[in-house]
């Protein structure tokens, strides 16, 4: 027995729905007979087509104005939930998803189940899985707070599969007073130029850690190799905290989860908090000068060596082949 209605908080970059949203929609189809999406933004028609394809019958649209979408959306979702009583509302564990689920949990007085990687319906109730201690221990959590359950899922927990559905019916919601939450205004957007695929979508990810030695080494070693392999580049938290690269590149427990065909770790020790973000990659190659580094415990190919010797030679060899 499945649930009646599950809602998915849909996010988009411009008019492209995020992969994390499509993954959750795919999962939601197996949980409930009716899947609907909620979206705060200005690309309703494009979003309706994509969420429809992945199984949503209706797209409820909230106008966030120039406010932060997740925070403005919470008020609209709360009003709609009071009218229609969905069984669960699922969010991505993302920047806006976290804003929305946090404010909504207060409005509805419901707990939040966060960092989920598994979701099922067993005997008509929702079963939620998360992982602790760097992904080494899995826990099942049940909530007794009543519907709607508020759930946040880590990206890459499910595969996104199209259901071939038609565009969702757009239901434009009237303005809801979001109170002071709406006062935070987005004045400007800066898009850092991105060449190549995104971290979460790339087939190949090359990440650098403290072992690369300096901020200056990131471009010639990590970025260069990633580009040659038509992949994306990432980082350990150590070099994000050190200010060498932006937070958006962080892979791990408090950063992104990636699951590429190939993950290459350069000068990364392999702390559990890093492993949790990449150990489900199909193939892992590691270069580290310490033969005892834990990263070798998950690597399919481990090279015990200096990144400053191995990587430049590798780059030359790959260039010579292409």
């Amino acid at each position: 027995m499945t649930l009646n209605t599950v809602w998915v908080y849909a996010e988009a970059n411009g008019d492209k729905v995020t992969t994390a949203t499509l993954e959750i929609l795919t999962k939601a189809r197996s949980l409930a007979s009716t899947v609907e999406a909620i979206y705060a933004g200005s690309a309703a028609d494009a979003v309706a087509a994509q969420v429809g394809e992945y199984g949503a019958s209706t797209l409820h649209v909230i106008d966030p104005g120039d406010g932060l979408p997740g925070q403005v959306a919470a008020a609209g979702i709360a009003t709609l939930a009071a009218e229609r009583s969905p069984d669960a509302i699922i969010f991505a564990q993302s920047y806006d998803g976290r804003d929305a689920i946090g404010r909504l949990s207060v409005k509805l007085d419901r707990p939040v189940l966060t960092n989920g990687f598994g979701l099922d319906v067993v005997d008509g109730t929702l079963k939620f899985n998360t992982a602790i201690f760097g992904g080494t221990v899995l826990v099942d959590v049940a909530t007794s707070a009543g519907a709607p359950a508020l759930v946040a899922i880590r990206p890459k927990s499910f595969a996104a599969e199209s259901a071939g559905g038609a565009a969702a019916t757009v239901n434009t919601l009237g303005a809801t007073d979001a109170g002071r939450a709406a006062e935070a205004k987005v004045l400007e957007r800066f898009e850092e130029e991105q060449t190549g695929p995104k971290l979460e979508e790339a087939q190949v990810v090359v990440s650098g850690g403290r072992g690369i030695g300096s901020a200056e080494a990131y471009k010639p070693l990590v970025e260069e190799l990633a580009k040659l392999l038509k992949g994306a580049f990432g980082a350990s938290r150590a070099i994000v905290d050190a200010g060498w690269v932006p937070y958006a590149l962080q892979v791990g427990q408090t950063g992104k989860t990636v699951k590429p065909k190939l993950y290459i770790a350069l000068g990364i020790s392999g702390a559990t908090q890093h492993l949790v973000g990449m150990k489900n990659s199909d193939n892992i190659i590691a270069v580290n000068k310490d033969g005892e580094a834990p990263i070798f415990g998950v690597a399919d190919l481990g090279i015990v060596g200096d990144v400053h010797k191995v990587v430049p030679a590798l780059i030359e060899a790959v260039k010579a082949k292409s």
């Binding site: 270069v287 070798f296 481990g302 015990v304």
Partner: peptide, 15 residues
């Protein structure tokens, strides 16, 4: 864990 080798200057060829 898979294969782990000590770099002797040709480790890149393995990759």
């Amino acid at each position: 864990a898979g294969e782990k080798i000590e770099d002797d200057g040709t480790g890149f060829e393995k990759i």
